[in-house]
Computed example of a mutant assay.
Amino acid sequence: MIPDDLRPPYRFIAFDVETANRNAHSICQVGLACVDDWGQIDTFSLLVDPAEPFSDFNTQLHGIDAKACRDAPQFPEVIAALAPLMARQPIVQHSSFDQRAVAAACGWHGLEVPDLHWVDSVTIARRAWPEFKGNGGHGLGHLKQALSLQFQHHDAGEDARAAAQVVLCAEEKTGHSFVEILAKQGAKPPREWHSATAYYEPFE
């Protein structure tokens, strides 16, 4: 289920989900973009059987339907495989929906929610590009255009990679690690993690 060529631990992992319908627990695809200390991104995605009907609206949005997920594993199997990898470093999400979806799916299936440290790349983007407020905003759609990112929106793997690229671009623009950016913003910084970010100068 998890690619054999991954090289953990990573500096952070960006994570994204797609859902089958309006229910947050109806996860039908997960995507991970694993970023190492040199900025290389290892991306993969998995289809998930949501065991729920697909809405026409969601299928039109991401192109995934019941037929595509017919032989896919259900969420309990997927999260059991991913949680050990995800728990080793901060998990970047673009907005809070992905964290809420994982929590909702765990609750729906009667599972304990994994102890993960979530980081919001929207907060990081707001710190790096305050000029986008009221001028396109900090959603992936506008950031794709403003930062010249190349990805297919509403594919979990592609969106995860885009969120990872947003963090890397923000670090390049500010000259600081995302941990320092969050600390400056007043957000809760990640716990102590494996990281090679000593080359960044602290904020004054």
Rank of each mutant, 00 (worst) to 15 (best):
Gly63Arg: 04
Ile64Ser: 12
Lys67Cys: 10
Ala68Ser: 13
Ala68Thr: 05
Ala68Tyr: 00
Cys69Trp: 01
Arg70Lys: 14
Arg70Ala: 15
Asp71Ser: 13
Ala72Lys: 02
Gln74Asp: 14
Pro76Arg: 01
Pro76Gln: 09
Glu77Met: 07
Ile79Pro: 06
Ile79Phe: 09
Ala81Cys: 13
Ala83Trp: 09
Ala83Pro: 12
Ala83Gly: 11
Pro84Glu: 05
Pro84Trp: 08
Leu85Arg: 09
Met86Asp: 07
Met86Ala: 07
Ala87Val: 00
Arg88Cys: 09
Pro90Leu: 09
Pro90Ala: 12
Ile91Arg: 06
Ile91Lys: 01
Ile91Asp: 06
Gln93Met: 15
Ser96Tyr: 02
Phe97Asn: 11
Phe97Lys: 13
Ala101Thr: 02
Val102Cys: 09
Ala103His: 12
Ala103Lys: 13
Ala104Arg: 06
Ala104Gln: 09
Ala105Asn: 08
Ala105Phe: 07
Cys106Asp: 06
Cys106Phe: 05
Gly110Glu: 11
Gly110His: 08
Leu111Met: 12
Leu111Cys: 07
Val113Pro: 06
Val113Glu: 13
Pro114Gly: 11
Asp115Glu: 14
Asp115Val: 01
Leu116Cys: 04
Val119Thr: 06
Asp120Trp: 03
Ser121Met: 02
Ser121Lys: 01
Val122Ile: 10
Thr123Ala: 15
Thr123Asn: 10
Ile124Met: 03
Arg126Asn: 04
Arg126Pro: 02
Arg127Leu: 15
Pro130Glu: 05
Pro130Met: 05
Glu131Pro: 07
Phe132Ala: 02
Phe132Thr: 01
Gly134Tyr: 04
Gly134Ala: 04
Asn135Glu: 13
Asn135Tyr: 08
Gly136Ile: 01
His138Ala: 03
His138Tyr: 08
Gly139Phe: 02
Leu140Gln: 08
His142Trp: 11
His142Cys: 05
Leu143Pro: 04
Leu143Gly: 10
Leu143Phe: 04
Leu143Asp: 08
Gln145Leu: 10
Ala146Gln: 11
Ala146Lys: 10
Leu147Ile: 08
Ser148Pro: 00
Gln150Val: 14
Gln150Leu: 10
Gln150Cys: 09
Phe151Arg: 08
Phe151Gln: 08
Gln152Thr: 15
Ala156Arg: 05
Gly157Glu: 06
Gly157His: 05
Gly157Tyr: 01
Glu158Val: 04
Asp159Asn: 06
Ala163Gln: 03
Ala163Asp: 04
Ala164Cys: 12
Gln165Thr: 06
Gln165Met: 14
Val167Ser: 07
Val167Pro: 04
Val167Gly: 06
Leu168Ser: 11
Ala170Gly: 14
Lys173Gln: 12
Gly175Asn: 05
Phe178Met: 10
Phe178Cys: 02
Ile181Gln: 12
Ile181Ser: 11
Leu182His: 08
Leu182Pro: 07
Leu182Val: 10
Ala183Ser: 15
Ala183Cys: 03
Ala183Tyr: 00
Gln185Cys: 08
Gln185Ser: 15
Gln185Leu: 13
Gln185Asp: 15
Gln185Phe: 12
Gly186Lys: 13
Gly186Pro: 12
Ala187Asn: 13
Ala187Trp: 04
Pro189Thr: 06
Pro189Ile: 01
Arg191Gly: 15
Trp193Asp: 12
Ser195Arg: 08
Ala196Asp: 14
Ala196Gly: 11
